[in-house]
């Protein structure tokens, strides 16, 4: 199973050189780049853990890659996502976001159905990995 969140999940996994081009694009737009990681990629899991603060005032994408390398060293077995914030009025949110690291094996999700009134069903999506304790999910 391949989680297809983010802007480039349908392309082959990005190389570091690929990532540099996209980060440089964001920096030249004046956006702050942020790294986050998680072992729970549920589509509604909004708040992944931040790897430090968003990086403001950078000129060159290599600075972001330094942090990404450091983040991978500690969290290489998890999902890592890179996003860029635009602070200009009328947007003030994320402008681009894509995955830059995946666990070696992606467990995927189970769809639970609970019968509701009439023919309705309540749906619940659960990551298979969540059955294992935090920190041991993709090992």
């Amino acid at each position: 199973m391949r989680v297809t969140q983010g802007c480039f999940s349908f392309l082959p996994d990005l190389t570091d050189d690929d990532i540099l081009t996209q980060v440089q694009y964001a920096l030249e737009k004046g956006w702050a780049v942020n790294l986050e990681f998680t072992d729970d990629p549920h589509p509604r899991n909004t708040y992944w853990e931040m790897w430090g603060l968003p990086m403001f005032d950078l000129h060159d994408a290599k600075g972001v890659l330094m942090e990404l390398e450091a983040c991978r060293k500690l969290h290489g077995d998890k999902y890592i996502r890179l996003s860029a914030f635009d602070s200009s009025h009328g947007w003030e949110s994320v402008r681009i976001s894509f995955l830059v690291n995946r666990p070696p094996h992606e467990d995927g999700f189970r769809l639970e159905r609970i019968a509701g009134p009439g023919r309705t069903q309540r749906y619940e999506i659960r990551g298979y990995g969540l059955d294992r304790p935090e920190g041991a999910r993709y090992r």
């Binding site: 060159d60 994408a61 600075g63 330094m66 942090e67």
Partner: peptide, 13 residues
């Protein structure tokens, strides 16, 4: 973190 912050800003320059 302080040193790395400076280094990140100096990258490419």
């Amino acid at each position: 973190p302080k040193t790395k912050e400076v280094l990140k800003k100096a990258m490419g320059g």
